[in-house]
Amino acid sequence: MTNNQKKNLLFAGVGGQGVLLVAELAARAALHAGFDVKKTELHGAAQRGGSVVSHVRFAPKVYSPLTPAGEVDILLSLEKLEGLRWAHFIRPAGLIILNEEERIPAQLDGNPVEYPKQINVFLVEKGLQTVLINATELATSLGNYRAANIVLLGTIAEATGLPMESWMAVLKENLHPKILELNLKAFEKGLELAQKEVWRGISSH
C-alpha cells in the first residue's frame, strides 16, 4: 500500500442478489492489503427485495463509513435502476458498472411502475465512465446465475488498485469450498472483461 492511496467503493442492488457479499469481499481485500477499512450497509428490509447499498472505504485512515456524495470512485450495481439511484455519489468521471438485469420495483401507490429507459445513456451524458455487463447471463453460462455478483466483482478488481494476491486470498478464505471453483471462474471472467474495456487505467487516478 502506498501512503496516499485511498478508494471509495459503493455496491448496490436488490435484496437477495448478493450485494453484501461482494462488499464484504472488497473490504476484506483492502484489509488484506494493509489499509484501514470501513464498510457499512443496511440490514432488515434488505431481505425483502428492497434496495440494498453498501459503502466500502479504504485509506491509511478512514473516518466516516459513509462516503460523501460526489466522492465515490467506483459504483458496482447488480441491478440497473439501483445503479442509477446512487449514481450521484460518483465523483466526476468516476466509474459505474451496471449489471444489465432489470428488476421492476413493486408498486407503492397502486400505479404501475415505469422502469426508466436508457439508464446507461443518461449516465454517459453525466460524464461517468459507464459500463453495462450482462453478468447474470455470463454467470448462467458458467453454471449458476447466482455467481453474477462475483463476475461483477472481478470487473472492478484491478480498478480498485488492490493487489491481485489480496483478492485471491480473500476469495479463498471467505467462499465456501462447494462454490469456490465456480466463483473463481466467475471472478476470472470479470477480470478478463475489464482488461478488454477502457477503464483499465482508472486506478492511477
Binding site: A46, G50, E114
Partner: peptide
C-alpha cells in the same frame, strides 16, 4: 451545494420491500 440525486432529471422509482 452538494451532489443530489438525479431524480429531477430522470424518473427513479422507489423500491419498497416486498413479501418474498
Amino acid at each position: 451545494d452538494g451532489h443530489t440525486s438525479f431524480e429531477k432529471e430522470i424518473s427513479i422509482p422507489p423500491r419498497p420491500p416486498i413479501l418474498c
